[in-house]
C-alpha cells in the first residue's frame, strides 16, 4: 500500500489559520518545527500525549464531504498537518510507516472536536466521525515534502 503527500500545513498557535508549506521538518519525539504542538501552544497542549506529535488526514475525506454532504472543506481547514492520498490512515494505528525519509508510528485515530467547528464555522463534527485522521509519533525525524510517498513498512 503506497500513498502520497498532497499538502503540508502548520500553524504556530491555536485558532490561527493553517498555512501551506512545501516542506516541514519533523523532530523525533517533539513534533513539527514551528507547529503549535511542538511548542505547547496548541489548543490541546495542556493534555499532552507522546503519540500526538504529527497528524495526518485523507484528502479523500474532503472529496467525500463535498460529494456526499455538499460541505466545502479545504485542506487548510481540517487542521491536521499532512494531507495524504491513496492510503487508508485508519489501518495505520499501531503500525510503522514512512513519509518520504521520515519514520512515523500511527498511535491512535483522531476524533472530531468542537474546536474545529468553532474555527471553520461549519457543522462538520458528525460527518467527520471515524474519518478524522490519524495521530502519529515521530520515530526518525527529517524533512518531508509535498509529493513524498507514504508507505507502510
Amino acid at each position: 500500500m503506497q500513498g502520497k503527500v498532497e499538502y503540508l500545513h502548520s500553524t504556530p498557535r491555536s485558532f490561527l489559520p493553517m498555512r501551506a508549506f512545501p516542506e516541514l521538518r519533523l523532530i523525533p519525539d517533539v513534533g513539527i518545527e514551528g507547529d503549535r504542538y511542538a511548542t505547547q501552544s496548541g489548543f490541546y497542549s495542556d493534555r499532552p500525549e507522546p503519540g500526538r506529535q504529527v497528524t495526518l488526514f485523507e484528502v479523500e475525506t474532503l472529496e467525500a464531504l463535498s460529494r456526499d454532504h455538499n460541505i466545502a472543506l479545504d485542506a487548510s481547514e481540517h487542521r491536521r498537518n499532512i494531507t495524504t492520498r491513496d492510503i487508508a490512515l485508519n489501518h495505520l494505528v499501531g503500525v510503522a510507516f514512512r513519509v518520504g525519509d521520515v519514520l512515523l508510528e500511527g498511535t491512535r485515530l483522531a476524533t472530531p472536536c468542537r474546536h474545529i467547528e468553532q474555527i471553520t464555522g461549519q457543522e462538520i463534527f458528525t460527518v467527520l466521525m471515524h474519518r478524522c485522521g490519524l495521530h502519529a509519533r515521530i520515530v526518525q525525524g527529517g524533512t518531508i515534502r509535498v509529493g513524498d510517498m507514504v508507505e507502510r513498512i
Binding site: T11, P12, R13, F15, L16, P17, R19, I119
Partner: peptide, 10 residues
C-alpha cells in the same frame, strides 16, 4: 497582531 505577524482568524 499575532506575535509572529501570522494572519489572524477571519
Amino acid at each position: 497582531r499575532d506575535p509572529d505577524n501570522w494572519e489572524l482568524p477571519p
